[in-house]
Design a protein around this nucleic acid. Structure first.
Lengths: 213, 213
DNA sequence: CCTATGGTGATACTCAGTTTCAGTTACGCA
DNA sequence: TGCGTAACTGAAACTGAGTATCACCATAGG
């Protein structure tokens, strides 16, 4: 099953911050609730599972479950939460003189790695997301929230002669979009393709252009 | 106020199809209901307006309002419905030997044109969408649904030596994404920038690349 | 002119998500 | 070690989205 202790074994420790005792406990409970909930969604479909079902399965009250996750979508997409910071972290660590588009491709590796680590589980998750419009939307919303930090990092590393921020925001959008299109293909091929290779292909379809037309 | 009779004065008549008498009436009612509903959303915010409010404002029952629009989001995003076909229509009409990226930029003109036609109304709409996560998500979902047709048209016009469909899907994503990033900037600048110019800039930030790396 | 189709409003229902409140646990500090 | 407070919990009631059903009415189209 999908690994939910993402906060504890996530391979990019620099994105973790100091947590109070209670915050650690809280995160652990969230992990546990999500771990219990996911199979229910996989088996019955996102819409068919109610908060009552989830609470019963987890042995807590509906109130408690709702307090840990503000919405059903949050339960499923919980695993994506740390990826924004992970992407930024990798991007910040790339050499300044590396080609921008290559750095962006590398920045997205944590996502590919997380979904590929457990064969089957990652695909099951993305398949669920892709067959459920509400989840697809919310994932894209989350992805959109990662953009500003990425664009800012691109500006920072380019220094004085950086392209306008609008240009950099566009490239951040494109990079994350390439990842999403790769997911799309991965789901359509039912996992028969290699996600990293698909991502290479989508990134290879585009390139930054000089905006001084 | 925003022009809601989009089905009747939309400047790309080729995308219109023959409608039965009842279907015409139905579309007219939808136009009217949306026209009445929009100002409510602008004034009170998307979440604060209930279906009861909308039904009362329109002088119909809640049932009837809900029968015409499956969700509140649909009411606001109704105006975007014909744009997928409009984009495809323009793309299909572009010369086959025109640069692919240029054709995609032109294909998106109907959207820019529609939002720019009435100064203020288009900006108000996009601002509402941008400040309401549920609307932002649903617009992106709708935009995502336009992609396959665009990619297919790109394949068709390139003929035998077309790039793999995954590459074309990526470029369709990028083109629509450029439009969204332009919206983003337009909203942030509160309409002080020219939407068409912003769109030119975002499109100018990227270029198709040879995927045979 | 008749009828079958489709639009309408009323009602009742499920479920997501919010709010409130009272009872309990356990963290951090003295 | 004990205490006070802050946070966690569950119960209950509430709002509002969205679905389903039904009986009624208007009219398109033959």
């Amino acid at each position: 099953m999908f690994n939910y202790a993402s906060r504890f074994d996530f391979p990019y420790p620099e994105v973790m911050e100091a947590l109070s005792t209670r915050a650690i406990g809280r995160a652990a409970v969230r992990d546990e609730l999500a771990r219990i909930a996911l199979p229910r969604f996989f088996e019955d479909g996102f819409e068919s599972v109610t908060f009552d079902d989830l609470a019963a399965a987890a042995g807590v009250s509906r109130s408690t479950f709702l307090r840990h996750f503000g919405s059903k979508e949050d339960v499923v997409l919980y695993v994506f939460d740390p990826l924004g910071d992970a992407i930024s972290g990798v991007l910040a660590s790339r050499p300044t003189d590396e080609d921008e588009w290559v750095s962006l491709r590398r920045a997205v590796d944590p996502v590919v790695e997380l979904l590929t680590r457990d064969p089957g589980a990652g695909l099951a998750l993305i398949s669920l997301v892709w067959k459920t419009p509400a989840l697809w939307s919310r994932l894209h919303e989350k992805q959109g929230s990662w953009r500003p930090a990425i664009a800012d990092l691109l500006a920072e590393r380019a220094g004085a002669d950086a392209a306008p921020i609008l240009v950099l925001r566009t490239r951040a959008m494109a990079a994350l979009g390439c990842l999403m299109v790769a997911f799309d293909s991965w789901v359509m091929g039912e996992g028969s393709d290699d996600l990293a290779a698909l991502t290479d292909t989508t990134f290879g379809s585009l390139a930054p252009a000089d905006s001084t037309t």
